[in-house]
Design a protein around this nucleic acid. Structure first.
Lengths: 146, 146
DNA sequence: CCATAATATCTCGATTTCAAAATTATTATA
DNA sequence: TATAATAATTTTGAAATCGAGATATTATGG
């Protein structure tokens, strides 16, 4: 008696969506308490951990349309959390660079952010988390390439 | 030598987000080709598979604010894909009910939708999918309750 | 039974996002 | 070297979402 593979895939899609949304909803609350929205946080955190980035790269990494990048970078610049800087070798390109004030903000937020995530994931043991990481990597990497 | 549990949780959060977004991006393309946006599809598909629902329940199930539910239900009603119907026992409550035209649309879309998801998940074997389902259930259910 | 609290929906204004077009700069081509 | 194609960013207008408040109804405690 064969299991319908499509049904299993659909089920996985549903629990994946639910898990992501449930976790994210709570994560976003902590972020928003800091005065940033989730997108602003994502941009700033990217710059903090990965260094200066061309606007185009930011869009590619956090899956945001080019017009939206302009908008959110404007916002963060107005708040003094990042600055734009010209690329010396290609004048089409503009880098975003986190300011000291931006760094301070991320340093303030990040520990609680990480702790919150850890708490939300506490229903899994460490080895289950590692299992889940492997499976989700295997799932997500090829899907990104279609 | 102890593993930092928080680091594992953060990693899991990242791969969960990536996998969800990568899959979803492709799923949404198929949906949008049908003239519905992802939220409209989610509402209609809920009504199709779970029967009539109070607007409030719809919001709870697909995580949408009350004002947004009003908006999307208006849209679907204008398209003739669902209708509102009064609850006989509680006059605060309004049910959404899929129309025959709505059913026909879902019947048209759903097979390709399911097939697309199955294809996006083909990097996992069936037993890996079942493993992932268990882990994500265990992860998502408690997180929804915080 | 009444006052108060809780619940469901809707309205409104503000924010965020996208898609398409416009702008500016670079690279490739003939 | 013009010219065309490509690329990065910005502008613009529309759509989607949220949150707070308004309204109507139902539930609850005294």
């Amino acid at each position: 008696m064969e299991k319908d593979s499509t049904a299993v895939s659909l089920k996985l899609f549903i629990v994946l969506s639910r898990a992501y949304k449930a976790i994210n909803e709570h994560v976003n609350k902590v972020i928003q308490a800091s005065g940033l929205n989730p997108t602003e946080f994502a941009v700033l955190e990217l710059l903090y951990h990965k260094g200066d980035q061309p606007l185009q790269q930011i869009g590619a990494k956090i899956l945001l349309a080019s017009g939206s990048i302009t908008y959110v970078v404007d916002k963060l610049e107005q708040k003094g959390l990042l600055r734009r800087s010209a690329c010396p070798t290609d004048r089409r390109v503009i880098f975003a660079q986190i300011t000291d004030e931006g760094k301070k903000l991320i340093q303030d937020i990040f520990p609680e952010h990480a702790q919150q995530i850890d708490k939300l994931m506490s229903s899994l043991s460490d080895s289950e988390k590692l299992e889940a990481i492997d499976l989700l990597k295997k799932l997500g990497l090829p899907a990104g390439k279609f």
